[in-house]
Nucleic acid binder design. Structure first.
Lengths: 209, 209
DNA sequence: AACTGGTTGTGATATCAGGCACATGCATGT
DNA sequence: ACATGCATGTGCCTGATATCACAACCAGTT
């Protein structure tokens, strides 16, 4: 089952489903149909069933899906039944905001290392108890702390260099906030978060659309 | 030409091309081929030519594209030949970081209004000279300042309410950082920026491969 | 003026993702 | 025990998206 190719879009949607399901767990909703969940997530009901079908059977015909169970299963599929250790580079406004952000902890993502090149910042202790290390120590500290995912919040011209250091650790997954395309070898994975790209989409929509 | 449907993915890529081209302008590179640009952006060369073909002819056969010209044309396509006025709601860590972030200004996006419900924050003046308004004043202030794009940085449970207020202005484009799916009528557009979705993708990749 | 190298623009082709519609099967009630 | 209602799981179809491959075309050279 797992050996046929899963579309990347499916994984992204699973993640979105899990957000909606978390909300339902809080509300105490016990059961949900693909129709209801679809409306909430803005997709087609068949899409949800198809996405889940890649990984097995989770529903009860004539009834729907048990919310808690389905959430548990999706999290397991995504690999969220463990904590993930993050290392972050670039303690500017954005980097600090991410560190302080609640959503990460809530989803089981934990920052275990922070880096910056600014000597004014190095050695400072953050509110979380984390200390800021110089970037030269990245490889060593990441190994010591068991970092598994790298978060890049540096200016664009530094991003590739940072990525290369992460590759050396090796940290095989990178979340890149810098507005450049980072090159990595096979087996490594980069996800880009570029606000301005999203804004450009909106601007286009307002202009032409 | 503009009357056939343009894939959303094309618009996103145009935005990515423009980032790469900006770098080339700084380096003083005068001309670029679709091959070179493709390598830099991690896409297929034919993809670039196809994307551009939706909007006209921009290259010279046997030569390539003039960097400055192409950048100008792409920006014009995206509607970036003007400044866009942003209004932001939710002045937590993330909201403040976005306000201070350089990339927005560099791309012609300008914050003209800021809102929060926390009475400790309302009335405070930010470094940029912007004052924080209470959310009840959103509709009025957005109209006064000519806000065109709304940025939502509130907790998830407040996001839909904020969106509804923006619809009333009307602000027709929303950049949503809250991890929920926002419902809007036709003609309005929401772009979601959800870090945890991206992280989940990485987690899946590390887990399942 | 003709030739050559090189890159675009684009029709044709392959691949992929999404949506429909129905058979399958569970739960409830009689 | 059987019939009914309802939502899932899935084969098939349709449409969109990406890639290939080649003709069209420009610049520089002989």
């Amino acid at each position: 089952m797992k050996y046929l190719k899963i579309p990347a879009a499916t994984i992204t949607r699973l993640s979105i489903y899990s957000r909606a399901l978390e909300g339902m767990v809080e509300d105490g909703t016990p059961v949900v149909s693909s129709k209801t969940l679809a409306d909430l997530c803005g997709v087609n009901p068949a899409q949800i069933r198809k996405d889940l079908a890649y990984f097995g059977q989770f529903g009860v015909r004539g009834v729907g899906y048990f919310v808690k169970e389905l959430l548990f299963d999706i999290k397991k599929i995504l690999g969220l039944n463990k904590e993930w250790n993050l290392a972050i580079v670039g303690m500017g406004n954005l980097g600090c905001a991410l560190l302080a952000h609640q959503n990460f902890a809530k989803q089981g993502y934990r920052f275990v290392a922070a880096f910056d090149n600014d000597m004014m910042k190095v050695g400072r202790k953050l509110a979380t108890g984390l200390m800021i290390h110089p970037i030269d120590e990245l490889v060593r500290v990441c190994r010591d702390t068991g970092a598994e995912i790298g978060v890049i919040c540096t200016p664009p011209d530094k991003a590739q260099d940072i990525a290369n250091r992460f590759l050396e650790v090796p940290v095989k997954a990178l979340l890149n906030f810098a507005p450049v395309q980072i090159q990595v070898p096979d087996g490594f994975k980069v996800e880009n978060v570029d606000f301005t790209v999203k804004l450009d989409n909106l601007a286009y929509h307002l202009t032409a659309g």
